[in-house]
Amino acid sequence: MLSVDEARARILAGLQPTGLEQLMLDAAVGRVTARPVPARLSNPPADISAMDGYAVRAVDTAIGARLAVAGTAPAGHPFTGRVEAGTCVRLFTGSLMPDGADTVLIQENATRDGDRVTVHESVAAGRHIRRMGQDFAAGDAVLPAGRRLGARDIGVAAAANHPWIACHRRPVIALLATGDEIALPGEPIPPGGIANSNSPMLAAVVRAAGGEPLVLPPARDRIEAIAASLDGLRCDMLVTIGGASVGDYDLVQAGLGARGFAMDFWKIAMRPGKPLMHGRIGDTPVLGLPGNPVSALVCAVLFLLPAIARLSGDSIAQPEIEAARLGAPVPRNDHRADHLRASLSRDADGMHLVVPFERQDSGMLRRLALSEALVLRAPQAPALEPGDQVGIIRLDRLGL
């Protein structure tokens, strides 16, 4: 069986980012840039005042000096003349610095009486001026390729005079649940049946990661039904749910095989989620998740989220791992990496305090919903006591 890290590396190695599309700024948040964003102008585009006050020559600002006000220059309305000896121009934050001035006398350090200003504090040359290109110069790459855009990035792109940004297209992730026993939520549940919690849950995972879920009708436990579900399918990744083990009714491998599935690997040394499958049908990558909902969600965190990130153009290779202290003992681990569902709080020192739930049954969805973190336990990890440090993956940080 493969380790979690090796399996994830093999999945990501076969993925390429989706093509690009041009998006308006307000539609680009959360998307990943497909190429660098160069500034189309400098910011500021010229020397401007950083404060309300007066544009002056520093040599004219001896304490007690009286300067003639030659004009007023609100932001967006530059003064067209020149600041000569013994004169000043009224400015406001963002006003263009007029020719001849080399500093700003802030209004708190001056008194105006009619068309005269009295200086109360001398000011050195260059004070309270934002220089042209101080933030960035025309031609600078204000955003790199591969950056997931937040509100601050949208702001800098707008300041660089871009109304559109080239981003990677949202990857389409097809979700195919299998099994005779599953019914759509809200439908009558037949004897021996269960509500299909996996498809809605994993669709939410895909959306939270920036992908576009394509939820296919569940396929029944017949090879031909599974194979037929793939006819005409167009997606960036196919995710099957359930039926990938070796039971008499675990027919996903055979159903995919009828459409040319090439297996890369099957089975991971992990808990929950051992029967994970990966391969390709032509150019389409396939990820086969366990049918147990808790196992499916844990595998989605470890493998599907990084895959969606890679398809989206992001360089993320694995979920962020943070440090926490245990609030309860945990026993020695066996040969499989374990991922314990746990609650999360803060201890007296402000550090994360994590308490694994006593029961870790992988069929307990409500317990999963109450979990705030996964505690990572390496194969053969020793027993730990309260206060010992562990690595965790915070589910709230993932939007899950």
Score class of each variant (00 low, 15 high):
1 M>N: 07
3 S>I: 04
5 D>P: 00
5 D>K: 06
10 R>Q: 13
17 P>M: 07
20 L>I: 00
24 M>V: 11
24 M>S: 14
28 A>P: 12
29 V>D: 08
29 V>R: 15
32 V>G: 01
37 V>S: 02
39 A>N: 11
40 R>W: 01
47 D>L: 10
50 A>T: 00
54 Y>Q: 02
54 Y>G: 01
60 D>M: 02
60 D>Q: 03
65 A>F: 04
72 T>C: 07
80 T>H: 08
85 A>Q: 13
86 G>N: 11
87 T>Q: 15
89 V>A: 08
92 F>G: 11
98 P>G: 02
110 A>Y: 00
111 T>L: 11
118 T>F: 07
118 T>A: 14
123 V>D: 01
125 A>Y: 03
128 H>M: 01
129 I>E: 01
133 G>S: 07
134 Q>A: 14
136 F>H: 08
146 G>C: 09
154 I>M: 15
156 V>Y: 05
157 A>N: 03
158 A>F: 11
163 P>I: 12
164 W>F: 15
167 C>D: 03
170 R>M: 12
170 R>Y: 05
171 P>G: 10
177 A>Y: 00
182 I>W: 01
185 P>D: 03
200 P>R: 08
203 A>N: 10
210 G>R: 07
210 G>T: 14
213 P>E: 01
217 P>E: 08
223 I>L: 09
224 E>C: 00
229 S>P: 05
236 D>W: 11
236 D>F: 13
238 L>W: 02
239 V>S: 03
249 Y>I: 08
252 V>Q: 07
253 Q>Y: 03
257 G>H: 06
259 R>Q: 10
259 R>V: 05
264 D>I: 00
265 F>T: 06
266 W>S: 15
269 A>I: 06
272 P>D: 06
273 G>C: 09
274 K>Y: 04
274 K>N: 02
275 P>V: 08
281 I>G: 10
283 D>F: 07
290 P>D: 01
291 G>N: 04
296 A>M: 09
299 C>T: 12
300 A>S: 15
301 V>F: 02
302 L>H: 14
306 P>G: 01
309 A>F: 08
309 A>Y: 02
310 R>K: 15
311 L>S: 05
312 S>L: 04
314 D>I: 09
317 A>M: 09
321 I>K: 09
324 A>N: 07
327 G>V: 07
330 V>M: 13
332 R>G: 13
332 R>A: 15
332 R>L: 12
335 H>K: 13
336 R>I: 08
336 R>G: 05
337 A>F: 08
337 A>P: 05
341 R>I: 04
345 S>Q: 10
348 A>P: 00
349 D>M: 11
354 V>C: 04
360 Q>H: 11
365 L>Y: 00
372 E>I: 06
374 L>K: 05
374 L>H: 05
384 L>E: 13
385 E>S: 14
386 P>M: 03
386 P>C: 09
394 R>L: 03
396 D>T: 10
397 R>S: 11
398 L>D: 10
399 G>M: 06
400 L>S: 09
